[in-house]
Design a binder for these strands. Sequence first.
DNA 1: GCTTGAGTTTACGTTAACGTAATAGTAAGT
DNA 2: ACTTACTATTACGTTAACGTAAACTCAAGC
Lengths: 133, 133
Amino acid sequence: MSEERLFTISDLARDFDITLRTIRFYEEQGLIEPQREGRQRLFTHRDRARLKLILRGKRIGLALSEIREILDLYELARDEASQSLKLLQLLSERKKQLEEQRRDIDAVLAEIVTLEGHCRQVIDTVTGKDATN
Amino acid sequence: MSEERLFTISDLARDFDITLRTIRFYEEQGLIEPQREGRQRLFTHRDRARLKLILRGKRIGLALSEIREILDLYELARDEASQSLKLLQLLSERKKQLEEQRRDIDAVLAEIVTLEGHCRQVIDTVTGKDATN
DNA sequence: GCTTGAGTTTACGTTAACGTAATAGTAAGT
DNA sequence: ACTTACTATTACGTTAACGTAAACTCAAGC
């Protein structure tokens, strides 16, 4: 059972709001390896999941080369954990980076809140005595 | 009092671990506007602070053009808040983006923790019956 | 007077991550 | 048979964010 549904390239492009070119490029870079039916690419759920990971990686500012490393680690962890110790080390490095990034984001968010407060205050002050616009 | 100490370009390059070229490039792009003594650039604490903001922006994946927008907003908010409403809107957009990014990071962190668990388990399993390496 | 060190400008080079034709095959609808 | 829709490959173009090299100025130290 479970007919393992397949996706076309435009399915994924639509779903993730990226171009066909982007998907082909990712394949060219070895980030995904869809099956072929003749020349046409066919994507499994697994390909889809990988694509999702790729895009998430991009959003947090990783380069494709780094994303590939991570994807490879996933593979590695799946196959066996022949080098789990090294993997653990790499994971902890990545974790440190991410936590740093989180702190940056929090800092920026805090500053935004401050600025918002500033704005509201100015607006309150101005409103009532002048409303030129 | 408070002699307003000035920084040279290499001071900042060293402090933030970036190249001279990078700093000059940021000036070229209008992100900072150091004073000149003759031809030489001289940076105030304010320039330094801006540079810090720029680099933080980069770390969270913003483009220089976006960073410039934000810096401009800071100026805007400082001068007066002539367009505070628009500013508020922009801030809230940016906030949404950042919160999304935070969610991404949290998701990745969670996955890392999972992978780490997986690794430890494998290592535990392997350790004791085989330690070839 | 010459080198050394820090700074400058000008300008071409580079890398990543796609964009954008141009050209062509293939299946479905009319 | 013709169009339309979707797919493919090949290959040159583009943008951001600097790198890098060449050639110059200018003050300090020996």
